[in-house]
Write a protein that binds this DNA or RNA. Structure first.
Lengths: 194, 194
DNA sequence: ATTTAAAATATAACACTGTTATATTTTGTC
DNA sequence: GACAAAATATAACAGTGTTATATTTTAAAT
């Protein structure tokens, strides 16, 4: 027995997965859920709330992907496994990924709750990356290393959706990203032990 | 004596620089240029054409930034100089950068002409990066190296606009990006000479 | 069970969007 | 000056997110 809020969110998720943001008008959501648009305002405070729910939904998927089993003898393998999951999720849930990292279409401003999930992801990646750094590394050093790897992956994902991506075979991207990540991890490891 | 097309483009650029995409309705452009909206359709085939012109405008600024003087004795310096220019332009022209690399808001699809400018940039970065690779590197190897550096920078720029960016001082970003780029260049150089 | 009030929901209306249709003005040619 | 073509203004259309108003449903009180 689904209540109205759930019905609306299920309808929104379905539309979003199938057609991205442009499929997500309040009337489309209303039609898909066999309700009128008013519930969107009552339960989600408007369309921003719908986008927020989808943002959080997408980020939680990313977090799940980052939640790899930790093998303390193979820190690099942990990072690579997390990267693989992240990349796969980003590609499988493009709409969500774009919502999270796109430039806030239609003036969507993430809520405090949405930001909290972001911070959680950064903490998590920082922890995983710490595995290749010396034990006495500062939190800031760990954070910077994490940001470097994250930027590298995120940059590739962003460029994959760009016009220049036409010049590279679609099935090659994961391999290319992981190669670049491995190279950078080597460099980070080497650099931090000198 | 500006003709109608120029008037419209000047008005659009002004609005875009000041207020980004949300400031760029066809009626706002009409008001700013003291014309009606019809010229947008006659001269630009609609709003897509306006976005295209701004996309090309932004990309040409990026290209200019990449057009650094080449010192053949300091290939890394060349790359760093180009990276600095790219980063500065991306930060100074955020709206344009978002338009180029954002997920095509309002169903904006770049024209063939816009894509051509993108390819030009990729060729240019590939040429600059070649400076640190062995002379017998294949074009593909050069392209991959270029994509790695571009992804790293692009990723940082993208994450700067994200919620997690709140955790890092705004004026530190350029330094962080350049440090990561240097590290990766070192790694590329070392890796390609083994 | 009935009545009343509160809550939920539907529908209508608003101001905005990009676009096309129609009307009007301007420009160019003879 | 008359006429035609081109340019431009204005009106209208179907869509957007949102709020206002109307209606229905649910819950509480008697």
């Amino acid at each position: 027995m689904k209540n109205t809020k759930e019905k609306i969110l299920i309808a929104a998720s379905k539309l979003f997965l199938a057609g991205g943001l442009s499929a997500l008008s309040v009337r489309a959501i209303a039609r898909e859920s066999n309700l009128s648009t008013i519930g969107i305002y009552k339960y989600f405070q408007g369309k921003q709330g719908i986008l927020d729910a989808l943002y959080i939904e997408g980020f939680e998927r990313l977090l799940d992907a980052l939640d790899v089993p930790i093998n303390i003898h193979d820190p690099k393998g942990n990072i690579i496994a997390a990267a693989k999951g992240y990349i796969k999720t980003a590609f499988d849930y493009q709409g969500h990924y774009r919502l999270i990292f796109g430039e806030h279409v239609a003036e969507y401003v993430p809520s405090a709750e949405a930001k909290k999930v972001s911070e959680k992801a950064f903490m998590h990646t920082t922890k995983i990356i710490a595995g290749i750094l010396p034990n006495d590394s500062t939190f800031e050093q760990k954070q910077q290393a994490s940001l470097q790897i994250w930027s590298l992956i995120h940059g590739y994902i962003g460029l994959k959706q760009h016009a220049i991506a036409d010049e590279i075979e679609p099935n090659l991207w994961e391999g290319l990203i992981l190669a670049a990540v491995r190279l950078h991890l080597d460099a980070l490891e080497q650099h931090s032990h000198t």
